[in-house]
Amino acid sequence: MKVTINGVPREVAAGTTVAEAVSEMTPAAAGIAVAVNDEVVRRADWAATRLGPGDRVEVLTAVQGG
C-alpha cells in the first residue's frame, strides 16, 4: 500500500506498524516523535498502530534552531 513518510511517497507492506516504519529510518528511538495524519502517535502505541493506505506519516526530531 502507498503511504507518505516525511513527504516522500513510499510503498510499504500491508499491516506495517509505526514502529516498523520508524525502525527502517533510524535505529534510535530517543528524541523522535511521530504523527500520522496530523495526530501524534505516542511511543507506547507505535508497535500496535498499523498504517493504512494513504496515511501521511511525519517522523520528527530536534535540530539546531531558535
Binding site: 516525511n6 513527504g7 528524541g31 511525519e58 520528527l60 526530531t61 530536534a62 535540530v63 531558535g66
Partner: peptide, 17 residues
C-alpha cells in the same frame, strides 16, 4: 537552550540533543 523540530534525516550524524 532552544531547539527546533524538523523531519528526521537519517543521514545526519550527531544530534544537538
Amino acid at each position: 537552550t532552544t531547539v527546533a523540530m524538523r523531519r528526521l534525516d537519517p543521514t545526519v550524524a550527531g544530534s544537538v540533543l
